[in-house]
Amino acid sequence: MEISKYSYVILVGFFVWLTIAPRNSSPRFGELFLAYMVALLFSLVATSEIIMIKPVAFFFTVGGVLAFCYLVARKTIRVTIKNK
């Protein structure tokens, strides 16, 4: 399987999973993030079983994993500038 062949599917998966991700301003962010993480986990496990039959589904979920990593990095890394 060529990963470059499925790069568009990975990009679309990234944007779809990023769109359905919970927002930081939500009062129930923790609960929604846990549900998002579990849905992504189940999706990844299910699509890894059918990778030989439907590789598009697997690479769509790989885009979701990249979106998850982006969300965690965005939530974890903070840059602040202090004015004197």
Score class of each variant (00 low, 15 high):
V65L: 15
V45Q: 07
K5G: 02
F60M: 04
I3F: 06
V62Q: 05
P55A: 00
W17M: 00
S48N: 15
T76V: 03
I53E: 14
L66S: 12
I50E: 08
M1G: 14
T47H: 08
F68C: 05
S43T: 15
G13H: 01
E31Q: 13
F42G: 15
I53K: 13
F15M: 08
V56K: 07
I51M: 10
R28P: 00
K82V: 15
L66A: 13
R28T: 14
T76R: 04
A57T: 11
W17F: 12
V62P: 01
V79Y: 05
A21C: 12
V9D: 00
I53S: 07
K54Y: 11
R74E: 14
P22H: 07
T61P: 03
I77Q: 06
T47K: 04
K5W: 00
K54Q: 09
Y36Q: 10
M52E: 10
V38M: 07
F14S: 04
I20T: 06
V72Q: 08
R28E: 14
V16K: 11
A67K: 03
T19D: 08
L44K: 10
L40Q: 09
M52S: 14
I77H: 02
F14E: 00
R23M: 15
L32D: 13
L71A: 03
A35R: 13
I51N: 05
F59I: 02
I51W: 02
M1C: 07
V56R: 14
P27A: 09
T47V: 01
K84M: 07
G63V: 00
V72G: 01
L11N: 11
K5R: 09
T80M: 10
I51Y: 09
S43V: 08
F15Y: 01
A21N: 06
Y6H: 07
M1A: 14
V45A: 12
F42I: 15
R23A: 14
L41D: 06
L44M: 15
I77V: 13
I81W: 05
F42H: 12
L41K: 10
L40T: 04
T76H: 08
A39M: 15
I50S: 10
M52R: 12
I50W: 01
V12T: 02
M52A: 09
S43M: 12
L41Q: 02
L32M: 09
Y36F: 09
F29S: 08
I10E: 02
M52C: 01
F42K: 04
K5H: 05
A35K: 13
T19A: 07
F14V: 04
S43L: 11
S26I: 04
F15D: 01
I53Y: 07
Y6V: 04
V12Q: 03
S26N: 10
V45P: 04
A21F: 05
F58P: 05
Y70P: 01
F33P: 06
A73Q: 03
